[in-house]
Nucleic acid binder design. Structure first.
Lengths: 191, 191
DNA sequence: TAGCCGCGAGAACGTGCGTTCTCTAGGATA
DNA sequence: TATCCTAGAGAACGCACGTTCTCGCGGCTA
């Protein structure tokens, strides 16, 4: 097996197992077995668990934001619809199998105090999401895009947390309605 | 030392250490030392770490919600001010020393998949907070108190997450402004 | 005073896990 | 064909930690 394929399989296994059960609940040997890779190869690809964890978060960040952006681009035509589509995408995610909240929040709770790399990955992810919503707000012609974008990010995080901890996927609808109300007050009428 | 005093000191130490560094990063012996209690006494009070963790969460839930309700009652006169005061309290919490996000979200990320007790404690906490905000919304005369209350809870969770992961205490102000906008659209004019 | 009880201190035990080491087999090369 | 390199399988190591056990001391009771 090639180095790159082993790396991909390890990241796939990490993405599933770390998200499903938490980082510390999954051992390197279980990961190795799930990926179908030898322990020696594992440590060639990721010399320590720390590095695997950070690579898992970095890749998940890219994929998560790409999936969101792709859905929004495909399902909405107007700037306002794009904002609302964000919450439609969340609704689908929440209702899907295996949803267990935000991987970055979870990892931060587990390791943020102890691992700078994890804390930085969580920070960067949230910062990037906020950048995305701020972009949507700017496209709307909002008076203060940073404010509206930040508020949309709050609603996203709140919905994820509520959906996970309360097991309530309808949090996405609640957040969508709140976002619509914020849009109405923060943008020039009729935009 | 009395049994009850040992229990209190253990819970005090747990509240500080578990919140500060995460549950799994703190060993029973370190906890014992921080509480100034013997290991034998520790296991008399809490026969397993699991039980100490759950007691920590239960007590923190009560104290957190009591502190919030007390602040709101003391700093706001009208129903609308009470809603906004929630976010003022959050702003103080975020800016205080040692803030590291929501203890329940953190514990859920760490152990929610593996411990039913932790998942239930997190659920119950969020459910209770939502009940509180729904009460505030009802006092406002909101057309749909459950909706507004739920949305306020989303903003609270979003603000906590953003403040923690982005290290940005001003998330409370953002959330406060968003709450004000929601109040304006969800309540009869002038209430 | 003699015996008993409960406590604190800390050693000890078992287990899980991150990481490294050993051994064996197979394929490429001269 | 002989040799070397690499990979896989899995044993081994070291450590951390949850939990239990041992020991010795101090205070109570008869």
């Amino acid at each position: 097996m090639h180095h790159d394929e082993a790396r991909t399989r390890l990241l796939d296994a990490a993405d599933r197992l770390f998200y499903e059960r938490g980082v510390q609940a999954v051992g390197m040997d279980e990961l190795r077995a799930a990926a179908g890779v030898s322990l020696k190869r594992l440590y060639q690809c990721f010399p320590a668990k720390r590095e695997l964890v950070e690579a898992y978060l970095r890749r998940r960040d890219e994929r998560w934001r790409a999936a969101l952006a792709e859905y929004v681009a495909a399902h909405a035509a107007t700037p306002a619809d794009r904002v609302l589509a964000v919450f439609d995408w969340l609704a689908e995610w929440f209702a899907g199998p295996g949803f267990r909240g935000c991987a970055f929040v979870n990892a931060y709770g587990e390791l943020g105090a102890v691992s700078d790399g994890v804390a930085a990955a969580a920070h960067d992810h949230k910062y990037a999401v906020r950048g995305y919503t701020t972009g949507l707000a700017a496209a709307l012609g909002a008076a203060e895009p940073e404010v509206l974008g930040g508020q949309l990010a709050l609603l996203i995080d709140g919905a994820i947390t509520t959906a996970a901890l309360n097991g309530d996927p309808t949090a996405a609808h609640l957040a969508r309605d709140a976002a619509a109300a914020l849009l109405a007050t923060a943008t020039p009428a009729g935009s």
